[in-house]
Amino acid sequence: MATNYDSLTAHDQQNPQKHQQQIGMKTMVIATVVGITIGLPLLALTGFIFLSTMALFLVASPLLILFSPLLLGAGFVIVAALAAFGAAGLLAVAGLSALGWVLRSVKSGQLQEGVGSVAGKLMEAGENVKENVKSTGKDWANQMKLRDEKTPEYGATANRA
């Protein structure tokens, strides 16, 4: 019992070139129609994009040359603003991490000891400043007395004013 496939195979074996040419011609015609259908609009679109790009370039190049000082200045301003925002962000992160460190120190009790010693140091520094001001004031007073004694006219002029 011969199937339809067997009869085609026997037919193909008798005329192999004729069968290949028929399939080749059909495939060639279909490929040509599909290629033209898809390729021509794409080629036309590519040409239109190229022409419009060149036209815009011809129009925009004189404008770019005329306004380049303004554009350059605006570019510098934008770059500086971006750098400032970046620095502000980094400082915000640093501030938040410092705040977190202080909060952890307060929770653990380490800050209590530090505050006591810092307060003591501040008190000592304040007393030292107080003593230095007193001694400096006394030195100035002594120098003014000496000056008055050396030049009596200066002291009299100062008293009249």
Score class of each variant (00 low, 15 high):
23 I>M: 12
117 S>N: 13
5 Y>E: 04
83 A>R: 08
51 L>G: 02
155 G>H: 09
69 P>F: 00
38 I>A: 04
82 L>E: 01
120 G>S: 12
135 S>L: 12
68 S>C: 04
156 A>K: 09
2 A>Y: 07
161 A>T: 07
62 P>E: 02
68 S>Y: 12
92 A>P: 03
123 M>L: 14
53 T>G: 14
14 Q>L: 12
120 G>K: 09
100 G>N: 10
20 Q>N: 09
5 Y>N: 03
47 G>M: 03
112 Q>C: 09
2 A>E: 10
53 T>F: 15
147 R>I: 10
149 E>L: 10
157 T>V: 10
23 I>F: 13
85 F>Q: 09
45 L>E: 05
111 L>H: 05
126 G>R: 09
50 F>C: 01
133 V>D: 01
46 T>Q: 02
132 N>P: 00
111 L>F: 14
81 A>V: 11
36 I>K: 04
71 L>D: 02
18 K>T: 10
114 G>R: 15
29 V>P: 01
134 K>C: 01
110 Q>L: 11
37 T>A: 11
92 A>D: 06
15 N>P: 01
131 E>T: 14
79 V>Y: 11
139 D>A: 15
48 F>T: 00
110 Q>S: 14
26 K>R: 07
138 K>I: 12
10 A>R: 01
76 F>R: 05
159 N>A: 15
53 T>V: 05
54 M>N: 10
113 E>Q: 15
8 L>C: 03
153 E>D: 09
13 Q>I: 05
157 T>H: 02
88 A>R: 06
141 A>N: 13
111 L>K: 00
118 V>M: 11
28 M>L: 14
21 Q>S: 10
76 F>C: 06
150 K>A: 12
37 T>R: 04
138 K>A: 15
14 Q>H: 08
51 L>P: 01
31 A>I: 03
86 G>Y: 10
28 M>K: 02
99 L>H: 07
51 L>R: 03
19 H>V: 13
24 G>S: 09
16 P>A: 04
67 F>M: 05
160 R>Y: 03
65 I>N: 11
125 A>F: 12
72 L>I: 14
141 A>H: 14
89 G>T: 09
147 R>N: 08
119 A>E: 08
7 S>V: 08
75 G>F: 11
115 V>L: 15
49 I>P: 00
21 Q>F: 10
139 D>H: 13
13 Q>N: 10
